[in-house]
Amino acid sequence: MIGQARPLAAGQARPLAASAAGTALLRVAGLTKVFRGDGGAVHAVRGVDLSVARGEFVAVTGPSGSGKSTLLHLVGGLESPSSGEIWLGGKRVDGLSQARWAVLRRRQIGFVFQFFNLVSNMTVADNVELPALMSGATRRQARARREELLAELGLTSKAGAAPGRLSGGEQQRVALARALANRPSLLLADEPTGNLDSSNSGDVLRLLTRVHDQGQAILLVTHEARAACMADRVISLFDGMVVDDAVVFPPLPSSTTAASVLRLGGDHGAGRSSLDPC
């Protein structure tokens, strides 16, 4: 076989039971969210368990309507769960007030959104500096961090520009810089490549990988496999529930060629249908 992913054995279905739970950065147990609307109740998230360890890159995939974004909003405190537990850094956070959540978001969580959501009437540099200013850094600290991030993400030349004048990819990089401004322990990304073309997506994903390599824990929600496969672990969501939670193993380098994937030649069973007698 060309590539394979090791399936979870029966006992491994619940990562929470493992001893790694004590050091997990994020722990979610039985999380549920029900939206009550005109058409009745919508169960966006049904009893989801997941965990993210320090420095781990976890992706959540699923079709649209599977509750991925809602799950991310719940983890980030932008929505409050109907039931379930959320533990961040060893402390229980699901019942926190909005004010406390806001403090968490300032210090420990960084957000990147599909539609960038930059503050439109501030320059790029100001956008990146704003979180530091708001959370009590000194002038020097804020300025230094800003320059560092701009350089890291290749935005120095655009520092004085208005966000509206940047391309999608550049705006998302600014958003990433802003999210990392306060060195959060967890980076939450909601479809970061959803609004980007192919090459810009690649740039952003490369940046995410680089950030991950430097030790950042990331929880990424996406419907694009290209983004999901960069993660250490991929959780599949369907209809608000987790259906799969697996580590992604890339195939052996020598046996992967694009041509083989495209069935352009080589490898066993070429050119025959399964229904052909053989």
């Binding site: 590539g3 496969c229 994937v261």
Partner: peptide, 18 residues
Amino acid sequence: NRQRRHYLGLMRGLSRLA
């Protein structure tokens, strides 16, 4: 799920190639 994991692995490999 098995098939999906396989695809993801392939995708990872392709990303590395790229």
